[in-house]
């Protein structure tokens, strides 16, 4: 695998999408579509450039990212700490298992009325819902990764009489890191989804709200511009994490045995 596996291997991957866009553009011009729900690709591009130029799209992006990453850091942080504690002290997990398994299946968005009551509209309630979503993948992957640290490594650390904190920092966390990182990757994808969903459903902030506003104002081109922009933002962040993962874990994963 190359370091840029998330980019199509060669330019041929772009033939179909570009051709499709051109065909749609030409077709819509020849048929002469006048619609309140559709827009020509050229109009979408113009709307996107306009929204980028006047800063509204960047402001909305910033707001969504603040919520998504705020929630990711808070929820992921809680999940990380709980996962480590419960993996190290199994009785804690016995106590928490039933309430955890009861809370987990509740969709974050179903908590919207509750957090609205508590926080009202704004960043706090959106971050809370994102955090609730981000907590689980990080928690479960941390729990299983810490539990799955090879017994030999733990024995090695006790043979040289390593203290608990040093064992944590030098053995358990590094050994569990690939799994924990995967948890954060999954959580990040979910964080963006929940942030945009909350914005579409209720919160007057960010990309989701901007898209809803464009729809309500009968600006389909702008609405589509936001839709594609959300896709691009998601893609960028996924690409960045893949890159980061390769950077951090490449030497130990790709190592081939010398003969």
């Amino acid at each position: 695998m190359t370091g840029r596996a998330f980019i199509p291997r060669n330019w041929r991957g772009f033939i179909f999408p570009v051709a499709a866009i051109l065909v749609i553009e030409v077709a819509m011009r020849t048929i002469g579509v006048e619609s309140q729900s559709l827009a020509r690709p050229s109009e979408i591009l113009r709307a996107a450039i306009g929204a980028l130029a006047d800063g509204s799209m960047l402001t909305a992006t910033f707001q969504t990212l603040v919520s998504a990453f705020g929630g990711l850091i808070i929820g992921g942080g809680i999940g990380l700490v709980l996962g480590i504690l419960m993996a190290m002290f199994p009785p804690l997990y016995w106590i928490a298992e039933v309430p955890f398994e009861t809370l987990r299946p509740i969709p974050s968005i179903a908590l919207l009325p509750l957090v609205l009551l508590i926080f009202g509209l704004g960043f706090a309630m959106e971050i809370t819902l994102v955090a609730k979503t981000a907590l689980w993948p990080v928690f479960f992957l941390t729990l299983t990764s810490v539990r799955g640290v090879k017994r030999r490594l733990i024995e090695f650390s006790s043979l040289i009489r390593m203290g608990l904190l040093e064992r944590m920092a030098k053995i358990i966390l590094p050994a569990a890191l690939p799994g924990i990182f995967l948890g954060f990757r999954i959580a990040m994808g979910a964080a963006l989804i929940v942030a945009v969903t909350v914005e579409i459903a209720a919160n007057p902030l960010g990309l989701g709200y901007a898209m809803m506003l464009a729809q309500e104002r009968l600006q389909p081109a702008l609405m589509f511009a936001y839709l594609f922009w959300i896709g691009i933002v998601g893609w960028i962040f996924n690409a960045l994490t893949v890159l980061l993962q390769k950077r951090c874990f490449a030497p130990r994963q790709s190592g081939r045995a010398a003969t």
Binding site: R152, L153, E155, L159, R161, I171, P174, A175, L177, R252
Partner: peptide
């Protein structure tokens, strides 16, 4: 009463005993 630093252990499964990172 427990492991001592002046007693060293070499395990058979070196692959699991070394730190891969």
């Amino acid at each position: 009463s427990g492991p001592r630093r002046d007693i060293a252990v070499v395990f058979q499964d070196y692959g699991d005993a070394l730190l891969p990172w």
